[in-house]
Design a protein around this nucleic acid. Structure first.
Lengths: 129, 129
DNA sequence: AGTTAAGTATACGTTAACGTCAACTAGGAG
DNA sequence: CTCCTAGTTGACGTTAACGTATACTTAACT
């Protein structure tokens, strides 16, 4: 339907403020693919699909997950399960992750509230000096 | 007022399911102190204060912060600011961290919702096989 | 034709956060 | 006294996640 837009490696790097090396590294460990090489120059080209994948990787990193964990999660997103066993496994994995994430959220909320109360304390102690 | 309870390094390690080496490493980089050495045996002893400090460190790690970041945050908790300049600096730091944490929380919520909807999709496609 | 820009592959270097091992010490249990 | 356990200080090893340098290729500009 559409002329899919392709990006060069440095375009993608600039887009997310990372280095080209980082992108190549993600490919090296199998987190990103560049199937679409320009056949003559051998240069990597990325589709919107790959751009979204990279975005997910970087979000995962910001959230403190390791590349290995992120890889597992993304792979789930993209495999469609063959058979009931596989589906069960995926659902269980999802539930574990959901639990983890919920814990992380509530711990972050606690941390936030602690910082807030420390801040308040400083603000109200302003008259002392 | 109270006989402060003291913990040995391996007690503390077992308590949080980490190694003694990890605790010594935190001391090595100045995140934990063991001022209370048994004077003769040179063995480290930890107070409840240090135990709480360690707990904060580990929480920070679970949330994806680096030890350096955690150190900065904890140091804030424990310095009482001299002068208005210092107070301002601390408040500003706190505000930055609060912003970061809020962002992290909402990104985690988005991730959670995405996983939830993928999970739902798998559940409702159960009739196909 | 020569140079500059962008990319490629290969490979060694680096930092954080520990793991692991060796050699030593001090305090009980038998 | 001897052995065992728990701890100590180095010091070198390890893994993840890239950084950096080197040598080569292709396209595009002058």
């Amino acid at each position: 339907m559409s002329e899919e837009q392709l990006f060069s490696i440095s375009e993608l790097a600039a887009m997310f403020d990372i280095s080209s090396r980082t992108i190549r590294y993600y490919e090296e460990i199998g987190m990103l693919s560049s199937e679409t090489r320009e056949s003559l120059t051998k240069q990597r080209k990325y589709t919107n699909q790959e751009r979204r994948r990279l975005k997910m990787i970087l979000r995962g990193k910001k959230l403190g997950f390791s590349l290995q964990e992120i890889k597992e999660m993304i792979d789930l997103y993209e495999t469609n399960p063959e058979g009931v066993e596989e589906k069960k496994r995926i659902i269980e994995y999802a539930d574990r992750k959901l639990h983890e994430i919920n814990e992380q959220i509530s711990e972050l909320q606690i941390l936030r509230d602690e910082i807030l109360s420390y801040k308040e304390r400083y603000l109200h102690s302003k008259e002392l000096e």
